[in-house]
C-alpha cells in the first residue's frame, strides 16, 4: 500500500485537480448507487409507501415543493432522488458486468490472435474488423433483438438484465481484442518469452504468466473508458424500451418515463436522471483519460 502512495501513478493523480474531482464525484455516484437501500430517503419500489397524492411534486426549492422530496416526485408519487439512486445501481451493475464480459472475451481472443498468429489471428481480426464497421450501439440493439426473438416470451422478464449485459458486452470486445493483440505481438517477440519457450513452457502458460501481465495497462484504460460507453449504451437501450425490465428501472428507463412529462411542465422527472447520467459518465471518462495519459510513458 505504501508502494502505491509512493508511485508515479499516485503522484500524477494528486497533481491533476480535474482528476481528483472526477474521482470524488465518481465515488459519490457509485457509493450512492451501491448503498441506495440504506442511503436513499425513500424506497420507490415499496408500493405500500407510495402516496398518489404526492405525485408530480416539483423539487424542494420550487414554490410547491415538499421538503421530503428533494428532487420532486414522478407521476406515481415516487421520490425522484431515490429513483435515481436505485436506477444508477442498475445502470452501474449493467455497465460493470458488460465491461467485465467484453474485457474477458476481448483479452482472451486478443491474446490468442496475437500469440498464435496465422489463421487464428486472421479469422478473429476479420470478425473484429467487420463488427467495428457498425456502431457499437447498433450491434447491441441487433444482438438484443436476436436474443429476445430466440427466447420464449415468458423468460424475457427473468433474463432481460443478462441479455442487455451480453448485448453490450459483445458489442465492445473488438476494442479490447485489437489492443491486446497488438501488445501481445510486441511481447511475444521479446526475449523473456523466447527464454520461456526454450525451456519448453506451453503456449497457454506463457500467455497467462508472461504476456498477460504485460499487456494489462492499456486494457485498464480501455475498460475505464468503456464503462462510460456501456452505461450510455444501457441507457439508450432502456430509453428505446428494449433494455432492462420496467420492474427494475435504470437511469435510461427513468429518462424515458420522464420524457412523457417534459412538455407538460414536470421537467424534473426526466432532467434529473439525465443530469445524473451525464455526471456519472463524464467523471468516469475523465478518470479514464487521465489513466491513459498517466500510463502512457510517451506523454509523460
Amino acid at each position: 500500500m505504501r508502494a502505491f502512495f509512493d508511485s508515479d501513478l499516485w503522484w500524477s493523480f494528486t497533481r491533476s485537480p480535474v482528476t481528483v474531482i472526477s474521482a470524488v464525484v465518481a465515488f459519490i455516484c457509485i457509493a450512492g448507487a451501491v448503498f441506495a437501500t440504506w442511503l436513499a430517503p425513500h424506497n420507490p419500489f415499496d408500493l405500500a409507501s407510495l402516496q398518489l397524492m404526492d405525485a408530480f411534486k416539483p423539487p424542494a426549492w420550487e414554490a410547491e415543493g415538499d421538503g421530503t422530496y428533494l428532487l420532486g416526485t414522478d407521476d406515481q408519487g415516487r421520490d425522484v432522488l431515490s429513483a435515481i439512486m436505485y436506477g444508477a445501481r442498475v445502470s452501474l451493475l449493467v455497465g460493470f458486468a458488460a465491461v467485465a464480459f467484453s474485457t474477458i472475451l476481448g483479452v482472451s481472443l486478443g491474446l490468442l490472435a496475437g500469440y498464435l498468429g496465422g489463421t487464428v489471428d486472421a479469422v478473429l481480426m476479420r470478425i473484429a474488423d467487420i463488427q467495428l464497421t457498425f456502431p457499437g450501439i447498433l450491434v447491441a440493439l441487433l444482438v438484443d433483438g436476436i436474443v429476445r426473438a430466440a427466447l420464449p416470451r415468458d423468460m424475457h422478464e427473468n433474463i432481460a438484465l443478462f441479455v442487455v449485459i451480453f448485448a453490450i458486452g459483445i458489442s465492445n470486445w473488438p476494442q479490447f481484442a485489437r489492443t491486446v493483440r497488438g501488445s501481445t505481438m510486441v511481447e511475444r517477440n521479446k526475449e523473456y518469452v523466447q527464454a520461456a519457450r526454450v525451456i519448453g513452457r506451453s503456449p497457454l502458460s506463457i500467455m497467462l504468466s508472461h504476456v498477460l501481465p504485460n499487456v494489462m495497462s492499456p486494457v485498464l484504460v480501455i475498460a475505464t473508458l468503456s464503462l462510460g460507453f456501456a452505461i450510455l449504451a444501457e441507457a439508450t437501450l432502456s430509453f428505446l424500451g428494449v433494455g432492462v425490465p420496467p420492474t427494475q428501472p435504470s437511469l435510461g428507463t427513468l429518462i424515458r418515463i420522464g420524457n412523457d412529462f417534459l412538455f407538460s411542465g414536470e421537467w424534473w422527472i426526466t432532467i434529473f436522471p439525465g443530469v445524473a447520467l451525464i455526471v456519472m459518465v463524464l467523471s468516469v471518462n475523465l478518470l479514464g483519460d487521465w489513466l491513459r495519459d498517466a500510463l502512457n510513458p510517451k506523454l509523460r
Binding site: E191, Y192, A195, I199, P213
Partner: peptide, 19 residues
C-alpha cells in the same frame, strides 16, 4: 533432454519479464 540446453539473449532489458 530439454533441460540440458539453455539460451542467453542480447537485450538485458527485454530478456527479463518486468513484472
Amino acid at each position: 533432454q530439454r533441460s540440458r540446453m539453455q539460451m542467453i539473449f542480447q537485450d538485458p532489458y527485454a530478456s527479463l519479464n518486468p513484472r
